[in-house]
């Protein structure tokens, strides 16, 4: 059985719990019963994507998009900084909706065993992965145009953490159920094909300071890295893995993940053969 990156799993659980806790507490606060000593922050306040969609508004009017607060801008900067160094660590480690999809994927793995996450041929899949940039452009334009957080009406993450509030649009529930169903066949379908924030962070893979590298001379070509990559990146075919879909999950690495040979798959600033 492949090694799993334990520290990542724990961090995922922590952030999922924090997001759920904040969502519930905000609802309690709205009826005048907040949990003592905890703020009344909404889910929007802790979403760094709120900062991204507010950039246009900030530049043109000096104000944020409705329902977005300064905390989103701060978190956006922090996540961008971390992505510049480590790549989209946020996607692989923090995002509660990515975590949720991974949990559902466990059922899919049990159902389909080795066939899980291999249903869409790579030759088609690699093009489908660009869909999320279309979503990103649409969200940015529509938010700038309307001044409202347009994506909330289609956002399965919002539906998951607000389903009890009566504020979730039917379209968001449909998106949530679609992601739930697809997660039984594909790992992280929302991240791969739709997530506009994943699209933004994915671009940092091209400029990240610490990239993922493969030591060609020690690699035994067992493809363990390929099989364990939740994003289906053909890791074993590259020397330096620069892929806009990498989520820095460490599942393919020698030290923490599936690679059985030490010092062969690493996040490293230097070329591995030069060590």
């Amino acid at each position: 059985m492949a090694k799993r990156v334990k520290v990542r799993k724990w961090i995922q659980i922590i952030f999922f719990t924090v997001a759920a806790f904040i969502a519930v507490n905000h609802s309690l606060a709205e009826v005048g019963k907040p949990i003592p000593l905890i703020g009344e922050a909404s889910l929007h306040a802790i979403c760094p994507f709120g900062g991204v969609v507010s950039i246009y508004n900030l530049l043109t009017t000096g104000s944020l998009v409705k329902m977005i607060h300064e905390s989103s801008v701060v978190l956006m900067i922090i996540v961008f900084l971390s992505a510049l160094i480590f790549g989209p660590l946020f996607c692989g480690w923090i995002c509660p909706f990515g975590t949720f999809q991974e949990w559902i994927s466990r059922i899919g793995r049990k159902l389909f065993k080795k066939r899980y996450n291999t249903f869409i041929p790579y030759k088609f899949d690699k093009y489908l992965r660009f869909l999320r940039y279309g979503v990103l452009i649409w969200v940015l334009i529509m938010t700038a145009w309307s001044g409202k957080i347009i994506f909330a009406d289609y956002d399965p993450y919002y539906a998951l953490f607000q389903f009890w509030t009566g504020e979730v649009a039917v379209t968001a529930f449909i998106a949530l159920f679609a992601v739930l169903g697809l997660s039984l066949f594909i790992e992280r379908p929302f991240c791969k094909y739709v997530c506009p924030y994943g699209a933004v962070l994915g671009l940092f893979n091209f400029i990240r300071i610490i990239p993922l590298r493969r030591n060609v001379s020690t690699c035994i070509s067992c493809s363990a890295c390929d099989k364990n990559c939740p994003m289906n990146i053909p890791v074993s075919k590259k020397k330096k893995i620069i892929d806009h879909q990498c989520i820095s999950c460490f599942e393919c690495t020698s030290e923490d993940g599936a690679c059985p040979v030490s010092s062969t798959m690493e996040f490293n600033t230097k070329k591995l053969e030069e060590k």
Binding site: G39, A45, E70, I78, I85, F86, F267
Partner: peptide, 28 residues
């Protein structure tokens, strides 16, 4: 992985604390 995780935590806490000190952090 451990280093990356801890670094992210430090970055996040540090960033939030700095923004609080600058009186910019607001969740409402």
């Amino acid at each position: 992985a451990k280093t990356a995780g801890i670094s992210f935590f430090i970055l996040m806490l540090g960033g939030i604390l700095i923004s609080m000190a600058a009186d910019y952090w607001a969740t409402e």
